[in-house]
Design a binder for these strands. Sequence first.
RNA 1: GGCCCGUUCGUCUAUCGGUCAGGACAUCAGGUUUUCAACCUGAAGAGAGGGGUUCAAUUCCCCUACGGGCUACCA
Length: 583
Amino acid sequence: MRAHASHDAAKCQAGHGHPERLRRLRPEAPQTGHEQNQTACHEISCKPRLHRQREPEADPGAKKDRHPGKQDTPRIGHRPRQPPQDAPAHRHLVSGPPLAYQMPNASAPMVSERLSRMTGHVVTRFAPSPTGYLHIGGGRTALFNWLFARGRGGKFLLRIEDTDRERSTPEATAAILRGLEWLGLDWDGDVISQFERRDRHAEVAHAMLARGTAYKCFSTREEIEAFRAEAEAKGSYAVFQSPWRDADPATYPDRPFAIRMKAPREGETVIDDQVQGRVVIKNETLDDMIVLRSDGTPTYMLAVVVDDHDMGVTHVIRGDDHLVNAARQQMIYDAMDWSVPVWAHIPLIHGPDGKKLSKRHGALGVEEYQVMGYPAAGMRNYLTRLGWAHGDAEFFTSEQAMEWFDLKGIGRAPARLDFKKLENLCGQHIAASDDAALLHELEAYLAVANLPALSEHQRGLMLAGMSSLKERAKTFPELLEKARYILTTRPVARDEAAEKALDPVSRGILASLTPRLRNASWTKEDLEAILTGTAAEHGLGFGKLAAPLRAALAGRTVSPSVYDMMLVIGQDETIARLEDAAA
RNA sequence: GGCCCGUUCGUCUAUCGGUCAGGACAUCAGGUUUUCAACCUGAAGAGAGGGGUUCAAUUCCCCUACGGGCUACCA
């Protein structure tokens, strides 16, 4: 149980999960890529070895066959019913006739080809493990996958890596789906449960056995630990080498065995990563990992590969804590003669202090940001920009992000969360929002923040005042503060500063104002004439009159424009509040 | 310990050997103003350190330092 705690955070960020056992998915649209990024690979291999270069975005591909599995999938949840306000409508794919699982090398189904073309050959996925809330880093990983797929007419799938039965909970799965829905990241098809696919994983492990790319290992945990202890004692750290790798089946004992990958011991495995460049891992540093445990359950390494392959995933975009794992996984793809997906390992997000993001940095869960009142569009913009750039573009809509998002724009260094910038962007998005849509999102915020809902009357006023309110708020709590003049009722509660602004002289002026307001036509022009006129008569600048007016109308010295407030709450209410204050 | 990844203003980043190293947020100073927000102008602010390669390095290579990851019958 070493280093477990720290492990978890990274895991969540990576949007990856624990694998272990499962079964099948039900792609409604089987994929069958046929291209390969050979060109890219080619160019690369010609480059000097250490000269790391980003490749042009490779086309996913399937150099061999790519066939999806198909079955009824255990559905964990449905995609959000409403696409985000600024997201394109969902693309529904026609589902072809059910396809049975096929063993490697089976010819690709026609349906797959057609659908592949329709979807631009791009299929991404987000694969969180349901052991808690949706981590902010995981949210960004999901966002990148979503943007990449949606921007290319591809598919964005969701798989829950719930193979760790001890730690996986339905509540966590629900929380993750809620987080994604709030962020506006809609996925295609049903949510896939990795656990449900465990039989298929085992099937592949046995297929590897049959192909001779895996072997039965009868070594016990004790033996392995002893091996390691001995190595450590000698100061070396050699990877475990099972004595059963090339053992004669005739010598197999009658006891449980694990299935281990027969990994190449020489040479190197090259990961062509779209973010990290060309990464070379020496095979001698990788062991013969176990793909199927002695109890018959699959390990994570196997499960991800099988699922990604069956789901037709073309681009694996995940946390860079999986970079080395990619080499191991690539060995499994090779062992099964499956085409390797395009890799893109993105750096994790760090806290403001540059350290790994942890609880002490405050908000970790995506839902916490929702409760803090950040609008989803602002979150998407900020998170997209965190670690990715498109020239000098800072403020943009999700449509633009989809159009611009690419793998080569992703940075290689971990980024830190900057709440100030988040707020600034959120403020811009709030200001740019449609009034009605904003009110709708505000009401959703009230619900999750456990605040009282708006009455019909309040909704009407809020809608009327929204155009001026939205220009001065960065978050929903701020918006509500500015809207206090609407949400409050007489007698208007005043804070200290407001009380101070209502000195005897000011009260007198307000009192003299009300008769004139009674005869006003209640247009901005008319009110302007009355107020500036009154201020002038008292030898005051308009600012001097505005202060007590704010105090009377909003109970604060900080508020929206006095004209906006008067026009929104109306003549009667305005006069009543002024009389209250003048009294 | 081994292997892998990373390191440009405080922060997010641009730059694909030759730039006054650009933008944004934040900060500071002015301006505007009906408070706040917004807005306008200006200022300050960066290539971790050291070696190479090159006519020329932020950019290519190496080393060091500092972060991070992997090294499980965890995910």
